[in-house]
Design a binder for these strands. Structure first.
Length: 575
DNA sequence: GCCGTTTTCGGCCCGACTGTTTTCAGTCG
């Protein structure tokens, strides 16, 4: 069983949970949490780094002790420190930490004073009225606990970023109409363009007399009001999405926006930087002793600690602070840089719209070229094209291009990569195309070596332009396939082909960390919509968001190139 | 347990809201 970074991070988080319940030194606990976060965000697998005898203490948040624990986990699958803690505290007690308003102190009380060891026992104790008798607990808390357990709280619900967008639009629109509100902006992971959003954070500029808080908790879509203060309130929408609103004065807007955009790891690092310069950074501003030295804009906050402005998508404490200090931040790609789309379907295979409708929609969004890439024969469920139908489409596209100058269609295919790595169409047919997009829709469960070899073999094919959705995960629906992406990226480099960042919000498939590796290796990324309808060209914005999180610049992306240059780059992949 | 432009010890981000208090602890972000 290979041990992945996620497994190691989970173990560190588990240790941190137990230490919290034990009431250990909070900074020691934070060290484990930092390490877990650091390990999760790494671009490469610790098991590989360990195999190459790399010095793990060079990683942020990993010192001598934790490096030793990582080696122990890689070797044995677990670590002695965790086993000792598990002997002291039953594993199920940990689950109670996931209940809202139950933190380590209260869980410890429940466990030690009432001997509650499971969620089931917790619910019973709440029903029996035993919890309110504990010091620090009361009737209200007891009811909250009961409702939370009964509602199966604790299971984390995150929303895909595209699902959150409509809520953001209508809420911001609503809030901007409230008297005294000068500005309303979404912060948090939404602003950082994360794949999924847990809570939605909104920062509002308003005067003290503005009724914005009252209007917020009165919003028509509110399911529940969690808290209602003068400067801060939380609601849960009927969909289950939690929204936190923070109201600030104009002079604090930048500091508040910066603070509520996060990430937590980034903020901790930033405040640490401030502290070393004798500055206190909070959501009201940057302070030298009592004097405010910055805060009206985010730029001023970063500037106060000697940094250039850091775009939200980079704020993960993955090197952006050092880069901002050295003036070496990337000039991130923007949506308007995309000149075309290299992966789209029509109703000829499993798309919803006609070729003509898709062309019109692409043009409306300012695209100068569009590759039509239907599924191939083997994907029967998607109406895949065999040679005959593909040749018909090729003709149709040639005819279109002869009579239209405003947008150029590229002849392509999304060809099935078969189980053994062969492609689903003959060389004779493939050779007539402008590009070949290859992808997997079957045998997701192959073991690492077989899956990797399968994909590498496909990429070695004489006609192979772009590997589409390389990881094949569907967020919260299907896990990624087991594939050695470092080898895949290396193959793309050797072979001179390209890797897709699929913009479908269910996929967002290339991970941001692999974008960074591709960029470092000089492998160009194709940010494609994989559109199956005219609406789905709008998904490109999420692909661009993911690319920005992966530090990609305009020049790192193949479909920012003008048509002539693009054709040249594609021809290199076609025999 | 980590870390270093106050460094190898002594710090470690910081404030709002709630409930149970009667001045604050716990939780959350």
């Amino acid at each position: 069983m290979p041990i992945y970074n996620a497994d190691i991070a989970d173990i560190f988080d588990e240790i941190a949970d137990y230490l919290e319940i034990e009431g250990e030194n909070p900074f020691r606990i934070r060290a484990y949490r930092n390490a877990a976060r650091s390990v999760r965000g790494l671009g490469s697998e610790l098991k590989d780094m360990a195999a190459h005898k790399e010095d793990l203490t060079r990683l942020p948040g990993i010192g001598k002790e934790l490096a030793a624990k990582i080696f122990e986990i890689l070797k044995t699958g677990s670590v002695g420190a965790l086993k000792k803690l598990q002997d002291k505290i039953p594993e199920e007690v940990r689950q109670m930490l996931k209940i809202p308003n139950l933190g380590p102190k209260r869980v410890r009380n429940l466990y030690q004073d009432l001997d509650i060891q499971s969620l089931e026992q917790l619910l019973q104790a709440a029903k029996d009225g035993r919890i309110r008798s504990l010091p620090g607990f009361g009737q209200k808390t007891e009811i909250q606990i009961r409702e939370a357990v009964e509602a199966h709280a604790g299971k984390e619900t995150r929303f895909k970023i595209a699902a959150v967008k409509p809520y953001v639009d209508s809420l911001l629109n609503y809030l901007k109409q409230v008297a005294g509100v000068q500005e309303a902006v979404a912060a948090g992971s939404f602003r950082r363009a994360k794949e999924t959003v847990g809570d939605l954070d909104i920062v509002v500029i308003a005067g003290k007399k503005s009724p914005v808080m009252e209007r917020f908790v009165d919003y028509e879509d509110v399911g529940e009001v969690l808290s209602h203060g003068t400067t801060r309130s939380s609601i849960v929408l009927r969909s289950g999405l939690q929204v936190d609103l923070r109201m600030v004065e104009p002079e604090s807007f930048g500091a508040a926006l910066q603070y509520f955009t996060g990430s937590q790891a980034h903020n901790v690092a930033l405040r640490g930087l401030g502290r070393r310069r004798g500055l206190k950074i909070n959501e009201y501003g940057v302070f030298k002793f009592e004097e405010r030295v910055a805060g009206h804009s985010e730029e001023s906050v970063y500037q106060s600690v000697g940094l250039t402005y850091i775009p939200p998508e980079l704020r993960e404490n993955r090197g952006e602070i050092e880069a901002a200090r050295d003036h070496s931040l990337p000039m991130l790609i923007e949506l308007k840089d995309l000149k075309g789309d290299l992966h789209a379907h029509t109703n000829c295979s499993d798309g919803r719209n006609t070729l003509e409708e898709m062309i019109q929609a692409a043009q409306k969004r300012g695209l100068q070229y569009l590759a039509i890439t239907e599924h191939s024969d083997r994907l029967k469920v998607a109406g895949g094209l065999g040679a005959d139908r593909l040749l018909d489409q090729i003709e149709k596209i040639d005819r279109f291009n002869e009579t239209h100058a405003e947008i150029t269609l590229l002849k392509g295919i999304e060809v099935e990569i078969l189980k053994d790595g062969r492609l689903d169409l003959s060389d004779d047919v493939l050779s007539r195309l402008d590009l070949v997009v290859g992808s997997i829709h079957s045998y997701f469960g192959l073991p690492l070596h077989q899956q990797t070899d399968r994909i590498l073999r496909a990429m070695d094919h004489r006609f192979f332009s772009i590997l589409a959705h390389p990881i094949n995960r569907l967020i919260d629906e299907r896990p990624p396939i087991e594939v050695d992406m470092l080898k895949v990226i290396q193959k793309a480099k050797d072979r001179g082909c390209y890797i897709e960042l699929n913009s479908n919000p269910r996929r967002l498939d290339l991970y941001d960390t692999y974008c960074q590796i591709a960029k470092a290796e000089g492998v160009l990324v194709a940010i494609d919509s994989d559109a199956h309808s005219t609406d789905s060209f709008d998904h490109l914005r999420y692909g661009v968001g993911q690319a920005r999180r992966g530090w990609l610049e305009k020049d790192d992306v193949i479909n920012t190139r003008p048509l002539k240059e693009l054709r040249k780059l594609l021809r290199q992949t076609m025999g």
